[in-house]
């Protein structure tokens, strides 16, 4: 009996594993199909613009508000530590570098996965469940080029923009705490920041990171929706998986990208 249950456990793990691999392959195939059927999302750019509205503009409020608070908290915490070493002027550098290098791309991507990613998964999943994708196929319209690709490119466009906004608003939040509230010299705040934040190494790398996160988050959301079982239960669990998988992918990719960017 024990042997039997152990064997069963083994089989379950093996099954889960092969299932993951299978889904990874299916996701890669969808990614490839999306790339090769992207022509229409640029020829008829209003399709993509519409999706930028739903993924980007609709995420603005959550991004701006969280950025503001993240910036303020960074300044408060940073000041606490820096003033012990008598270098509270370096608070501008701390806030800016933390935001531009790491927190901007990562937190934006996590919020994006929660706000826009789930919406995409639910929408595509419901379109599938209500046979809208099937209907499109029967009308000789490829759902990948008409539905998937515009959403994909919209996510890839929106994410870096959201990231840049996140960084900017976060720095402003940090400024508000550091300068009027704590009393750090405004000039020192900005000058130290300017002297220590590099355009290419810090800002551009951050933007590149967020573009990669945009590809990953949007693709995961699209795949989960496209692959969801066409039932209410299937769509809801696909939505959950979108958040979990996107978050893990973002954090993993962040490590890979950071180590790659630091080494060059």
């Amino acid at each position: 009996m024990i042997v039997n249950s152990r064997l069963h456990l083994f089989c379950t793990i093996g099954h889960r594993f092969t299932q993951r691999i299978w889904r990874l392959g299916a996701g890669a195939r969808l990614f490839w199909l999306t790339i090769i059927s992207s022509g229409e999302s640029f020829r008829r750019f209003h399709l993509t613009i519409r999706e930028v509205y739903f993924t980007g503009v609709m995420s603005l409020i959550i991004i701006v508000v969280s950025a503001f608070f993240v910036g303020m908290v960074l300044a408060l915490q940073g000041y606490n530590t820096l003033q012990r070493y008598g270098s509270s002027e370096a608070i501008g550098v701390l806030v800016a570098l933390a935001l531009v290098r790491e927190l901007g791309p990562v937190v934006t991507a996590l919020l994006f996965a929660g706000r826009a990613g789930t919406a995409i998964t639910a929408e595509i999943g419901l379109m599938k469940a209500t046979e809208q994708l099937s209907a499109m196929e029967m009308m000789a319209v490829s759902p990948i080029s008409r539905v998937i690709a515009p959403r994909f490119w919209a996510g890839v466009i929106a994410m870096p923009i959201l990231n840049v906004l996140f960084c900017m608003v976060g720095i402003l939040g940090g400024y508000l705490v550091a300068v009027p509230l704590i009393g750090v010299d405004a000039g020192a705040f900005w000058s130290q920041m300017q002297a220590n934040v590099d355009w290419r190494l810090d800002i551009l790398n951050g933007v590149i990171k967020s573009a990669v996160f945009g590809v990953a988050c949007t693709m995961i959301a699209l795949f989960e929706g496209y692959d969801a079982p066409p039932t209410a239960e299937g769509v809801s669990s696909a939505t959950t998986r979108t958040v979990v998988t996107s978050s893990l992918a973002v954090l993993g990719l962040d490590f890979a990208l950071t180590s790659f960017m630091i080494s060059i």
Binding site: T130, Q132, A135, A140
Partner: peptide, 21 residues
């Protein structure tokens, strides 16, 4: 070829399958 053939077909789905957006 299949897309070419489908352009000669129309299909009414069980629940309409209208595009909700």
């Amino acid at each position: 070829g299949i897309y070419q053939l489908r352009r000669k077909m129309g299909m009414l789905f069980q629940h309409g399958a209208l595009f909700t957006d």
